[in-house]
């Protein structure tokens, strides 16, 4: 196998832009997923069936169907329905966020439910409201336990974002595919793409370890 570095070098500016878009789409999707997931998670934990049933259905749908299919539905269905036309980056962020929210919802739920029942009872017995109990007693303990699971989810999201090359969002995989098409070569585009993802997940992992230690 010969490896022609000059091809990679020629594509470097495009790959750099692709990498920026991957980082940007992933970051936005992580944030939206975290916020949406919190709502979905609390909805699922609700004792009121008109909250818990739809949220349960949401989680089942997004965890039980391929992200590939979800991206196509959002790109060709949902986004045109709302915007009147489609947009690859908007569709990509929407699909990744909706998908991620289903997973983070379960992480929130598992984290909160892992806190001993006595903590809640002690806080309530002191006269704290359920909201104050959640805010000052349960969440600070639960978030700490959620961080490793969130870390996994973020890393999966960065890697899964490669699927949006399918709808021509110009991120890392999109440019790698273009490179293969132009030069009819396999090793250069795909090994480079793999390396770029590895750099992203490695950096994120280091960041999470740092955050976990700080808390």
């Amino acid at each position: 196998m010969d490896f022609r570095f000059e091809i990679v070098w020629r594509y470097a500016p495009l790959l750099a832009r692709g990498m920026l878009l991957t980082v940007w789409m992933s970051a936005v999707s992580i944030v939206i997923g975290l916020i949406l997931g919190l709502a979905v998670g609390f909805g699922k934990m609700s004792h009121r069936p008109y909250f818990s049933w739809p949220m349960n259905g949401y989680i089942h749908f997004f965890r039980g169907t391929p992200l590939y299919v979800q991206i196509l539905i959002v790109h060709f269905g949902l986004v045109p329905l709302v915007l009147g036309r489609t947009d690859a980056v908007v569709a990509a962020i929407t699909a990744l966020s909706l998908n991620s929210a289903a997973y983070t919802a379960e992480i929130y739920r598992a984290g909160i439910q892992s806190i001993d029942r006595g903590q809640r009872e002690a806080a309530l017995s002191l006269g704290l409201t359920p909201w104050q109990t959640m805010r000052h007693v349960i969440l600070p303990q639960a978030v700490k336990r959620m961080i490793p699971a969130f870390g996994n989810e973020f890393i999966v999201l960065i890697k899964d974002s490669s699927l949006v090359a399918l709808i021509a969002a110009p991120e890392i995989m999109y440019w790698s595919n273009a490179m293969r098409g132009q030069y009819m070569r396999v090793w250069e585009p795909y090994l480079t793409a793999a390396l770029l993802y590895l750099v992203l997940t490695y950096v994120l992992n280091k960041l999470l370890v740092y955050v976990e230690r700080r808390l």
Binding site: G118, Q119, A122, G127, P140, Q141
Partner: peptide
């Protein structure tokens, strides 16, 4: 209910101190 609970102290078998 919360106002009334504030007037009633409770001590548990497992202490239930807030560990954080």
């Amino acid at each position: 209910l919360h106002r009334m609970r504030a007037e009633i102290g409770m001590v548990f078998q497992q202490f239930n101190l807030f560990p954080h």
